[in-house]
Amino acid sequence: MAAAGEANGGTGKLEFSLDVPFPSSRDATIALRSLSPDKEPRKGGISKLITVSGSTLSVRWSADESRILRVSVSSFLDHLSLVMETMEMFGPPVAV
């Protein structure tokens, strides 16, 4: 898991990115589809993009304030660990 936070000079926004390795691209896609449907609770000030490339799930945040960013990243990590625990206990995925 690799994470990096930086203040982007170009947009003036705080940006944060996170890469999460999964055992397979199938697992990464399941996590993506479990984590994507719920939008950020607040109306503005933050955006989050989740993508999958190979077996890596990547998330990129862009926020106006560090406070909002911290809440979003922290809640995402809670969600991610629950999804990963669920996959460990009730996986592997059935053949399609």
Binding site: A31, S34, M87, F90, P93
Partner: peptide, 14 residues
């Protein structure tokens, strides 16, 4: 919290 687990097992189990 609950929706996350439901979505994940639905996908795992097809």
């Amino acid at each position: 919290t609950v929706a996350l687990v439901a979505r994940t097992v639905a996908q795992l189990w097809g």
